[in-house]
Design a protein around this nucleic acid. Structure first.
Length: 494
RNA sequence: GGGCCGUUAGCUCAGUGGCAGAGCACCUGACUUUUAAUCAGGGUGUCGUGAGUUCGAUCCUCACACGGCUCACCA
């Protein structure tokens, strides 16, 4: 039942057989259906755009046949290349009976190269009148239908190439994605950040609260983990004297798949010495509008029906302020886990009594506040228990200098003044180990090597992580993360 | 992992406890300026898979697979 691999009773077998027969008849008359190269003079869009200068001149274009209208001894076809489409016109009296006969046998999906002169048809379309043409690649399987395109979501993801052929909007999304990463890199490099690469295979995973993927190295006979974050390696580089570093790459988390989560996802993390989280906030509210301007030409975007202005300054609220505003709960009046839990139970919030106070706060945030954060907002000052890598606020040691950046109800950025006190860091890890022992299998693990790095001294540092996939969702106005990942994770078909 | 919904031709979709349907695609024929070309003909199918109920199942029941949404968790 495997189709693309060409076995037995394949889908469209009859259609495929017809095309294989055409392929064989091409070979029978000495034509190579899969030649090496083709030299073109113009892309489709160029040729159409430069028609005035090119009228009557000969051009060479190449592409996939996406439409054919055979009118007896003359045929119109549309050729698609990466730039767009161009119409070509073939006539029997120009090509001769044999070559024209083969032209009529072309199938939708075949690639050809055509040489001919530019003219305008009587309905006004710029067209190449074919003097000669070459087969460039025969296609054996039919393309999706031309009116409705390809709709079946599963097929769109599993056979993304069909989606890209049939739905121009899909290609646009991934052009935006490429532009976003390009602009982000340019922004950081212009500010003196150095791009680095750190290990994906790690003996100890860290930098986030998440379950890792586990793998095994034969020669070393040891378990390795796919990274869940780049954080701890990048901070080692700050210890080593790099003052501004960043990395763009995949993280891997062994968690459920949802509209906002893919097990592998792209993150940009940056670290800047001598900066704190206020400096990082200022950078984020410059960077995101910069990217939007570079890629979309505007700082005002539409996301799921909302018009969102990305220009600075962004709204800044504290965790406690946001909770007071959204739920009326003043955290200062409920300083203990028990008090807060009882208040939340009174308000009919669905939480269990076993959650820590920090997790209760987290629940209020994610349930009542985050979905409302449509316009760019920094939520600041988180409980220390959920932020084991962030520096405490000097006046409120139960809180840390940390912020999350939200747009469109989604967390896009997470940043803090990095904890550089190795003794405090060790205590935080120990606390995480206690949480782990108590059943929290996403708690951080101890990283002695990282603490040794900190003990050699790390300057004050502002760190940042940005979910690149989600940023692309916002800028390309896509509802699901699968729409911005070319090959999203799906269950394997047997 | 739980709940709900879905899976019918290459694609997009209708439909029924009693011979399986449409549009496009495809095949045959006509056609030398078409544009979703047109005209005349042709249905190309394991109705997701496997059991069960039934005289008879694509339809009803159960299990499974895959997908979507949603809940939980995270970025």
């Amino acid at each position: 039942m495997c189709r693309a691999c060409g076995g037995g009773m394949a889908e469209g077998d009859d259609l495929r057989q017809q095309r294989v027969a055409k392929l064989e008849s091409l070979r029978a008359v000495g034509i190579d259906p899969y030649p090496r190269r083709y030299e073109r003079t113009h892309m489709a869009a160029e040729a159409v755009g430069q028609f005035e200068q090119l009228t009557g001149q000969e051009v060479r274009v190449a592409g996939r046949i996406v439409g054919m209208r055979i009118l007896g001894k003359a045929t119109f076809a549309h050729l698609a290349d990466a730039s767009g489409r161009i119409q070509i016109y073939a006539r029997q009296d120009v090509l001769g009976e044999d070559k024209y006969g083969l032209f009529k046998m072309l199938d939708l999906g075949d690639f050809i190269g055509a040489t001919g002169t530019m003219f305008r048809t009587k309905t006004g379309e710029v067209t190449v009148e074919v003097r000669d043409y070459e087969f460039l690649a025969k296609s054996l399987l039919p393309l999706p239908e031309k009116w409705h395109g390809l709709v079946d979501v599963e097929k769109r993801y599993r056979q993304r190439y069909l989606d890209l052929i049939a739905n121009p909007s899909t290609r646009r999304v991934f052009e935006i994605r490429s532009g976003v990463i390009d602009a982000m890199r340019r922004f950081l490099r212009e500010r003196g950040f150095v791009e680095v690469e750190t290990p994906i295979l790690q003996p100890i995973y860290g930098g986030a609260a998440a379950r890792p993927f586990e793998t095994y190295h034969q020669a070393l006979d040891r378990t390795l983990f796919l990274r869940i974050a780049t954080e701890l390696y990048l901070k080692r580089l700050i210890v080593g004297g790099f003052e501004k570093v960043f990395e763009i790459g995949k993280n891997f988390r062994n968690e459920g798949i949802s509209i906002k989560h893919n097990p592998e996802f792209t993150v940009m993390e940056s670290y800047e010495a001598y900066a704190d989280y206020n400096d990082v906030m200022a950078m984020v509210e410059q960077m995101i509008p910069y990217i939007a301007r570079e890629v979309l030409g505007t700082e005002e975007i539409t996301f799921q029906g909302n018009t969102i202005n990305l220009s600075p300054p962004w709204r800044r609220i504290t965790v406690s302020g946001a909770i007071l505003e959204a739920t009326g709960i003043d955290l200062r009046e409920y300083p203990t886990q028990r008090a807060l839990y009882e208040k939340m139970a009174d308000l009919h919030m669905k939480v269990g009594p076993e959650l820590t106070r920090a997790k209760l706060i987290d629940h209020i945030l994610s349930t009542y506040i985050e979905p409302e954060l449509i316009h760019p907002t920094f939520v600041m000052d988180f409980p220390v228990e959920v932020s084991p890598l962030a520096k405490r606020k000097p006046d409120e040691p139960d809180l840390v200098e940390r912020f999350e950046g939200y747009i469109g109800g989604m967390e896009l950025a997470n940043a803090f003044s990095e904890l550089n006190d190795p003794i405090d860091q060790r205590e935080r890890f120990v606390k995480q180990l206690e949480d782990r022992a108590a059943g929290d299998d996403e708690a951080h693990v101890m990283d002695e090597d990282f603490i040794i790095a900190l003990e050699h001294g790390m300057p004050p540092t502002g760190g940042l992580g940005i979910g690149v996939d989600r940023l692309v969702m916002i800028l390309a106005d896509q509802y699901s993360i699968r729409e911005v990942i070319l090959f999203p994770q799906l269950r394997t078909k047997v």
